[in-house]
Structure formats: C-alpha cells, structure tokens
Design a protein around this nucleic acid. Structure first.
Lengths: 294, 294
DNA sequence: CTAGACCTCGGACTAAAGTCAGAGGATGGC
DNA sequence: GCCATCCTCTGACTTTAGTCCGAGGTCTAG
C-alpha cells in the first residue's frame, strides 16, 4: 500500500508542477491544442491520420485546427502523391519558427527546473527521471496476440530478420533456420505476440510446438529504441504463461553466440543451458525451462 | 544539453501517460474541475478561501462550481462560526462516497501501472519516483525576503522556537538566546528569508550583523515535511549570497549539540568549526565560513 | 458608529474544447 | 466499371473553462 501511496503522490506532484508548465510555456496567445499540434507536426511533417491517432483527436476537430493554422500561415496540408486520400501536414517556414520558439521555451523550463539544484542533486534528478521514464514505458507497453500474418506482425519479423542478418557474422536467412511457419504460430499449435507502445509495435515473440508438451520459443525481438527497459522479460513471461495455457510443460529455445544480452535474459529468467537438441545452423546455445503448472 | 533533453523527454512521457490517466480515471460524467474539487475538499473539508488559493481559481468560478456540487447534493457550504465572512466546504455523505470512488480509481491506476512490472522493477520505479518528487519539490521551492514581522515570517520563527524547545534537553526560550531583534534582521544590518512551496512557508533563515564585515546566520529552520530534500542547502546558499551583497566577508553561526543534521549541513557546505565566539546559552558548536567575493 | 478591508456570490461574457453526422473525393478488389 | 472502404472536411452543436466586475454581507481598527 505504501507503493500505491508513492505512485499517487508522484502523480499529483508531477502533474501539478509539470502540467502547470505546459500551460504557461506553450502559451503563445494561441489555443493550447494548436501549440501542441505545431509541436507534434515537427520539422519533418506528418500524415494527418497519424496525427489524429497520436493525439487521439476527433477528425473534425483536427481538421478545423489545421484550417486555423493554415489561415495563420503556419502549416500547409497537401495530398500524398501515392494515395491522394491521405494528406500530409508540413510546417511553413513561419510555422517552423513558431515551433522553434516553443522548443526554446520548453528548454527554458528545463533550465528553470534544474537551475536551483546543486550539482549532485541535478545528477540525481536526471537519473531518476530517466529511470521513471523507462519503467513507465515498460509498464505502458501492451502485449497483444494478433495473427502472425497481420501487417504489424510481419513488420516485426522483418525487423527481427534484418537485425540478425546484420549481427551474425554469417548473415541470416530465415529460410535456412528451423522452420516456424505461420501455421505453426497459431493456436492450438503455437502463438504469436506483438508488444506495442502507444500503438507502435516495439517487439514480438512466438511459440511453436517442438514435441509432446514441449514448446519452442522463437522470434524474440525488441526494437532498439525499447531496449534496456525490461521488455524482453515481459515478452518472455507472457510467452511462458501462454505456453502453460496451451498445455506445454516445458519450453526450449536456441540462440546464437552473437546475442549475448539474449542469453543473459534467458539465464536470468530461469532457463538453463542444455545440450544441442536440434541442428539449426544459426544456433550455438540451447536452453530450456520447466514451466510451473497453474 | 543532454540534461535538458532528459527533462524534456521526461515531461513529455509523464504528462502523456499520467495526464491521460487524470482524464480517464477522474472522469465520472462530471467536469474535471468538479472532480478535482471533490478531491481537494477531502474528507475533512476546507475553507473556500484556501481552496481558491490552492487551486488558483477565480472566486466567481469557484463559487459557481461549488453551487453546482451543492445542487448535486455532494457538498455543503456553511459560514465559519468565528468569522462569518469565511465559508467552509464539507462533503455530504453522498459527496464523500464520490470522493472514495475517485480515490479508488486513483489507486486502481497506481495498481495498473505497477502490475506489469517485476518485483525489482517495481522497487526501482518507486525509488525513482520518490527521488523525482523530492527534487522537484526542492526545485519548486521559492525563496522570498519578506519583512520579519510578516505573518508567515512570524509563523516560521514560532515553529523554529517550538521545535528547539522540544528537542533541547534544557528547553528553549528565544529571549535568553543571543538577540536577533526584528530591527537587526532588516537591511542594511541583516536579512530575513522565507522559503515557500506552493505558497506555503516551509522554512526560514536570517542574517544579522555580528561585527565589522561579519554576518551571523540565525533562525535556520526547515519544516519537518520538507526535510531531507536539500532545502537547508538552498536556504544556506541564499543567505550566503545575500551576506555577500550586504558587504560581509565572513559569516559565522552557533548551533546546539542536539542538532546533528544542522552541523552536518554546515560542514558539508564549507563551514569550519571554530572556538566559541560568544556565550549563547544554547550554543555548543561555533562555525564560520569566509565568503567568496563576487 | 463608521470607513475600509475581506470574502463570497451571481450575472454576463468569451474562448476553447470536444462531439456528431453526413458529404464527397480517392482507392482497391472483384 | 462498380461498390465498399478509407480519409478528410464542413457545419451545427454542446459543454467546459475561465474572466471581469460590481453587489452585498461581515469584520476590525479607530
């Protein structure tokens, strides 16, 4: 219960102090929603649809906000060449100046916050902020079980492959590795998960049948941007739980010598190294773990 | 600059994730402002004037919000017996049920946040949250130089005295201690500061003339609720800076053997213990520090 | 007893935020 | 080529949030 009190107190303190800032510093005689929009469009521009998803705005509302910014000469909205239903927003030079001004103010707030602190206090608050942010992200990550053929699922597997190709001395060709066809990754024979953060896929993992009551873990991947947060552990734990549900009493996996962090992850989470149980050309280490029954 | 990026990224992440919560979890088919009000009134009730100060609301606006809650049967507003200009708001039983419901939701959010984390991650995020909260408070504390006779100034000094009375074996009587009259604590002979957090006084400190070019630090006090944040350091630093401005080249102070943390604070901030330079009946240790000229 | 200060209240607004429904152009699959 | 679907836009609203200001009750110092 002390934990809950800590979280509540933190929420309160932070929303008060930082929320106040958002109001004051982003306020340039312009509705907050518009200022946030300028910020969110950024110097590169975005598709309207993505903007809507990111900020979770009503399409009519967003459209009207964009019209207003357009009237002020801050943005321009043009249809995308490939698909003229989609429109892309871009800041005009004037809009970008505005964005830079907002940026400057945001920096100024950070300076005001750090300024009264002594050197070591500053170091400590920065460390703690990074820690909170990291773990909040981890906590906010959502695990879903889409079909392995879904767009995001395929995207994750592609990322997984291209990363392995890059890291393995011998390159990587999914076809040569021990199979894990789409069919094998669907219940009841297996499962496939995608982890998302704010809607964006940031990791995946899969489970297939390796033998009677034995599951095999495949396709464990975490986006570079989400590494070091503990997401690997969450994915692994979710797969193990799912494995239990699917009736496996044991899971195994193989991994490559170039993936040191992965081996550490498995060991830390109760996997023990065993003798080779297959001849996957990319495998150097084999692990297994007996699942606790529910 | 990495520091500024860290702060900005933290602000963004936290306002997004926690701000979202505020909207969703406090939303009970009721304007947010009303929900916040119910929360802020709490189970004990508050004076309308304090509510206004705490939430920084326009008096008309607040009044209208209270009328609305009254119509819903959630609060009652009654004039205070001692001063019938001031009115006190109290939750009705129905209002308190509502408050408990909001409380429950707030707890639930905390649980949702902690739930996906492993034991050690949970411990780490809680530690980091406490750290951020503490240091944000420290950073948000504001140092002011009111007249020593101001209401808040006198209040702080009273707190200071009653705490010393409680902690000293021999009790404490301000009159017997080396004097520091109001006159002595005003420029150009001295100075008096109050530290505030969100408007509430949480500490004080004073400076008087002890000899040619020598200042004496008096009345250093930090509210119990604000201890361990580093506020003592900020007050001390502010007094030293002011001492330089007033033309002192050296500051000294005396302290009592029962105030261990205070001695540590002085030593940590460049004060060195010296032989007794006065006969204050409550002093056991004497310190001084040569100020760096600007 | 009175003037001035304090506190709260209600009226009259304005601006911002957000919702809903439907129009209409663009695209892709058949 | 046709139809369902996707994406964006506009118009017509409602609800919240917030500001300004003067009225009027209550208290305190002189």
């Amino acid at each position: 219960m002390a934990a809950i009190r800590t979280v509540r107190s933190f929420n309160r303190a932070v929303t008060q102090r930082i929320g106040l800032f958002t109001d004051r510093f982003l306020d340039r005689d312009r509705p907050l929603a518009e200022a946030r929009l300028i910020f969110e469009i950024g110097s590169d521009g975005v598709d309207v649809r993505e903007l809507r998803a990111r900020l979770d705005l009503d399409s009519g509302y967003l459209s009207r906000l964009l019209r207003s910014l357009e009237r002020q000469g801050l943005v321009e909205v043009v249809p995308l060449a490939q698909d003229r239903r989609i429109r892309r927003v871009r800041l005009t030079p004037g809009g970008d100046r505005e964005r830079q001004e907002l940026d400057r103010r945001s920096d100024e707030f950070a300076r005001i916050l750090l300024d009264p602190l002594a050197e070591d206090e500053r170091r400590r608050i920065l460390d703690a902020m990074r820690e909170v942010e990291r773990l909040l992200s981890l906590s906010a990550a959502v695990i879903e079980w889409p079909d392995p053929t879904s767009a995001d699922g395929r995207w994750c597997v592609e990322q997984y492959c291209s990363e392995l190709a890059e890291r393995f001395e011998m390159g990587f060709d999914l076809g040569r590795s021990i199979s894990a066809d789409v069919e094998e990754l669907r219940p009841p024979r297996g499962a496939f998960l995608v982890a998302r953060l704010d809607g964006r896929p940031i990791g995946c993992g899969a489970l297939k049948t390796a033998g009677p009551q034995v599951g095999s873990i495949k396709r464990m991947w975490v986006a570079r941007s989400a590494r070091g947060f503990g997401l690997g552990r969450r994915i692994l734990a979710a797969l193990e739980m799912r494995a239990t549900d699917l009736g496996f009493s044991r899971v195994c996996l193989e991994t490559n010598r170039f993936l040191g962090e992965a081996q550490k992850l498995y060991r830390r989470n109760g996997f023990t190294e065993v003798a080779a149980f297959n001849d996957d050309p990319y495998a150097d280490h084999w692990f297994e773990k007996t699942l606790r029954q529910k």
